[in-house]
């Protein structure tokens, strides 16, 4: 479904992603694990296309020059240089790190904003879908998103990505700053999302709660692939256990 080949991303002369190849198949939950500064967020931005926007802004500001190279295939189409809006139409949606939402709009309005690109009449179905995955959001739908707790905002942020009806959902550190209970709930939700036929690519540095749910995973360090394997292989690898599970 998604295949990235030999991705390289430079921030000026620093190599953020070095010759990275990853693959996501249909209805898979794939993890990208790595410590801080490994390049997880850059990878997510590169796949979702946000990097194109960042690149243009940096260029206009005269700041860092960002160079993106390699190949990014999504459902048989080369996407590396497409705009983020095009990628969303084609089915790649990103829920960004630290759950950015529109604090002054209500939960329901936040979800509605995400359907802006859609021209079909089935928006109501998507609302039901998101409320089905995250039941607490239904109760909160009239509340201002800024008043919601961190966990609720994270649900909302994932919900906003789901409202675009993606085929591939990218989650950047969805567990960041959440209580263990909320983490479990979110991982349950990720499984439910997969059951609905959506592939999920999760970037996370704290892998313990996530590891049992992964079909496959990539461990990256300093932008380079250091280990890859199925969920079982990751769980059995002593180094992965030591670095990301903390056992």
């Amino acid at each position: 479904m998604l295949e990235a080949k030999n991705l390289m991303v430079f921030f000026e002369n620093a190599l953020a992603i070095n010759d990275l190849s990853i693959e996501v198949k249909r209805e898979e939950i794939v993890g990208v694990l790595g410590p801080n500064s490994a390049g997880k967020t850059t990878l997510m931005n590169t796949i979702s296309g946000l990097i194109i926007d960042i690149k243009i802004k940096e260029e206009r500001r005269g700041g860092e020059r960002i160079t993106v190279m390699g190949e990014l295939w999504f459902e048989g189409e080369e996407m590396l240089h497409s705009k983020p809006s095009y990628r969303i139409r084609k089915g790649i949606a990103l829920s960004r790190e630290r759950h950015p939402i529109f604090p002054d709009s209500s939960v329901e309005e936040n979800l509605r904003i995400s359907t802006y690109l859609r021209k079909d009449p089935e928006v109501q179905k998507s609302f039901e879908f998101v409320y089905g995955i995250f039941p607490p959001l239904r109760e909160l739908r009239k509340r201002k998103a800024g008043f919601c707790s961190g966990g609720e905002q994270q649900m909302l942020s994932v919900g906003m990505a789901l409202m675009t009806r993606p085929k591939l959902l990218l989650l950047d550190e969805p567990l960041l700053g959440l209580s263990p209970m909320m983490q479990r709930f979110l991982i349950e939700a990720i499984r439910r999302i997969r059951k609905e036929g959506i592939a999920v690519l999760v970037a996370e540095q704290f892998a313990r709660p996530l590891l049992p749910s992964l079909d496959r995973g990539y461990v990256i360090e300093n932008g380079m692939l250091s280990f890859q394997g199925t969920g079982q292989e990751l769980r059995d690898n002593p180094e992965v256990r030591a670095s990301f599970v903390g056992v």
Binding site: F10, E12, N13, R65, T67, M69
Partner: peptide, 8 residues
């Protein structure tokens, strides 16, 4: 054969 501009 790929090149990129470098700033030093």
């Amino acid at each position: 054969e790929k090149y990129r501009k470098e700033r030093l």
